[in-house]
Design a binder for these strands. Sequence first.
DNA 1: TATTGTTATACTCTATAACTATA
DNA 2: TATAGTTATAGAGTATAACAATA
Lengths: 161, 161
Amino acid sequence: MSEDCDEPNQSQGGVAFLLAQLGAHAAARFADRVAELDLTPAQAGLLRMIAVSPGLSQQTYAARLGTPPSRFVVLVDTLQGRNLVERRRGSPDRRSYALHLTGDGERLMGEMGAVGMAHEGDLCAALTASERSALRGMLARIAEQQGLTPGVHPGYRRPAG
Amino acid sequence: MSEDCDEPNQSQGGVAFLLAQLGAHAAARFADRVAELDLTPAQAGLLRMIAVSPGLSQQTYAARLGTPPSRFVVLVDTLQGRNLVERRRGSPDRRSYALHLTGDGERLMGEMGAVGMAHEGDLCAALTASERSALRGMLARIAEQQGLTPGVHPGYRRPAG
DNA sequence: TATTGTTATACTCTATAACTATA
DNA sequence: TATAGTTATAGAGTATAACAATA
């Protein structure tokens, strides 16, 4: 049951199914790991987005993540309550807030980097270094051809089915 | 920004993130496709499991999928109401039900096969045939090393984070 | 009047646990 | 009494839409 390529019933072993299965597994394992830093995957994703592109308005981040503003507010509330993120009033337009990481937030981002490396290594344990590189290249090509935004996980939009 | 291999901030382009991102995308696209057959992904998965291993008890299917019995019952109710699945009382133990596909159910499985092929082809459009084979091989090895059950999507357990 | 951020409400989905019928 | 299946309830998480402040 390894090389059945043209059988109609190959769906359970096809690339599409394996991607869905492994993707859910990777997301669940990542959730386990960031839970040790008291973060949900959504919080971790937002922290990284702020680290990469700081100082934007809440609406901008929300639009990039594809999440509605109402959900975004409570996300920021929680991170601000833990002193990881800071709201600064916009200078020309005082309705908006610009988001920045605090010192604690940047420290936590450092820990998240280590967590991400460990996650990556654990997930790719079955592959050699050159295989990982080849795999990453193919996945990136698929992602680009499918029109996915780099660095944005669709989990912000809808739950899995 | 293509071959940064040792940078701590490569998480957004690493294998683990790409798997999670593409997995969610593949699952969402699959949901779109089976929705045209008026099926949810969970219903489609159960139909296929019954097709592969018919005549088992509801508890057995539920345990294999990792879903609680209460959720499983309504799943079967819906499929039975559409005359796709049949409940037959167990012969030695009349408490249990053995599940089978009806004629309509088997016909629908045929359509699902076509849907799965189209889904696979669309998702792998960026790759050559030999690349698809290499990708499938690596993904299968990762799945095995990670201890995943072949053919069972973890989406039956918990929602995505 | 339009827009940023916020709050309130309603809805969907899920699991835990109580219930029935057979054993 | 234990087990297969079912039903009821409660909880988490989500989005839609009404609201307050600034432009």
